[in-house]
């Protein structure tokens, strides 16, 4: 069992996770509207922040590694990430020729 929460009395992990998710959200907002970066750099930046935030939710709120199936759960999410990249990037690339 990864996390035995019933010993803790204050939800530190959740509060840290929440603050981090707010920071990441506002950082994305700042990059998009106030950073003055080139469009491409902005896109890369905000996508990286979104991925970070997804990882944060998976580990701090959803406890993906928890339980005796933690390994399966983690491989499952990693593989689904692979599929998501293939479907999204693959479709954009393949369909880019259409005017």
């Amino acid at each position: 069992m990864g996390a035995n929460h019933h010993h803790e009395t204050f939800p530190w992990k959740h509060i840290v996770g929440f603050i981090l998710s707010l920071v990441l959200t506002f950082a994305a907002l700042w990059i998009a509207f106030s950073s003055g970066l080139a469009t491409k750099a902005i896109l890369v930046g905000i996508v990286v922040l979104a991925v970070l935030q997804a990882v944060l939710q998976l580990f701090m709120f959803m406890h993906v590694t928890e339980s005796d199936s933690g390994k399966i759960q983690t491989i499952n999410m990693a593989y689904s990430f692979f599929i998501a990249i293939v479907v999204v990037a693959g479709s954009i690339w393949t369909m880019a020729f259409v005017l």
Partner: peptide, 18 residues
């Protein structure tokens, strides 16, 4: 349910791709 969420990732990925 975790595995189902994996399927949901594929579902939303397709919607995002579209």
């Amino acid at each position: 349910f975790w595995i189902f969420l994996g399927a949901e990732v594929a579902l939303f990925a397709t919607l995002f791709a579209t």
